[in-house]
Nucleic acid binder design. Sequence first.
DNA 1: TGAAATGTTGGGGCG
DNA 2: ACGCCCCAACATTTC
Length: 475
Amino acid sequence: MTTLVWFRSDLRLHDNPALTYALHHHRKVALLFIHDVASPYPQGSANQWWLHHSLATLSDNIQKKGGELILKTGIPQEVLWKTAKDLGITSIYWNRRYTLKERDNDATLKKSFENSGTSVKTFNSHLLFEPWEVLTKEKRPFQIFTPFWKHCLSLGKHQDILPAPKFIPSMPYPSDPLESFELPFQALWAAPFLKEWEPGELGAIKRAQAFFENTLCGYKKNRDYPAKSATSKLSPHLHFGEISIKQLWQSAHYAMQANPQFDEDAKSFLSELGWREFSHHLLYHHPDLPQKPLRKEFNLFRWEENTNHLKAWQKGMTGYPIIDAAMRELWQTGWMHNRMRMIVASFLVKDLLIPWQEGAKWFLDTLLDADLANNSASWQWVAGCGTDAAPYFRIFNPVLQGEKFDSDGEYIRRFVPEIGLLSNKYIHSPWEAPNHELRAANITLGKTYPLPIVDHKKRRAEALLRFKNLRKDAM
DNA sequence: TGAAATGTTGGGGCG
DNA sequence: ACGCCCCAACATTTC
């Protein structure tokens, strides 16, 4: 009578329903993680780096409690069957995943195990609400965020958070060394990451505590300024399930109750959790969200193919300081401030007229928090082709956004040091600086820092024209 | 979770 | 004192 718990994107011991259920009902419990070499959703490089460290800490934590994490490489169903056979498994538990292919695979697995007499139970660890539970009066999925989130808030689930187990039994079984996964944990590009990030459950809990203690106060206002460290930075931890989303929901509600002064800030944070929830529900109901625009008329859009522009955007060499600072922040730290994501995305889609899928691809590869649901939904939002999306005419002006949200240029100077000596007046638009100031700042435009690769005013007009034609064609 | 274009108002300079 | 013009400053509309 041995039980198997299959870890996936729930790399934590606290509030882990599959794990807790297994330990509560069985004495012999084996814990397994499978490195899925043929995953239908291959992970980006930054994600892989994080996964390595997250697994290392999870494995340590399990050992400290007496057990061990079995690591295996292969195709999940094959590894599961073999492990189940070897260990004489009579029940398997896992926490649910929500993409179409994973659901299909899980359903097939569940059926075949059940047919062979193995009991299978699945749990929700990743979302506040199941996608099939949040529906309109007509029993249809919500299309628009605000009514979606209002509905979620009215459901107001407050279930108890499951404490981490005190003891985990040992269940010896040959495990692959973590290094055999060949995740790029020692990659040069990742060298600076450990300064900013602590992958794993403990790092996640510390980050959450620090957020509620120090950052929640003023969150609503401060979160827009990229030079401040005023966001939660919980996204990678959430992606890998190192912190419980229900825990965060509860903490935010406690903060509100404890201090009415935090009401607006906590609500603002909760609504960010709401966007995550909404994105996951969207992906559940629209499996081709990562590839295809939800608004079908966008299939006709006339995009540009310009490798040079795409590369300039990726490397932070567009000549627009706020764009370049943000893209370099992403490359150097594996993360980008939320408002900056909107600005650079708007620039790619509406100034460079490059397909949003290209941007989505780059983000999936470089973001430590890369998440198929959040990423796809957000890019569709910016491109204007989502169900609830920014209207096509909402085009960010990179200079104005810089002046508004990085008025003293602190963020730009941090990531684009070669123009750091410019005065605040020209830090957002170096091409407008008089020659003597450029000389004094050691800048030769086109040489030490690029001239703008496109003229925002012209490209804005061009984008509006194309989007307007699109509407006309669609009618 | 925009920005530009266009419209309106009101104070001050000036003949 | 009056009308006229200019143009911020703000409001509204449009993309």
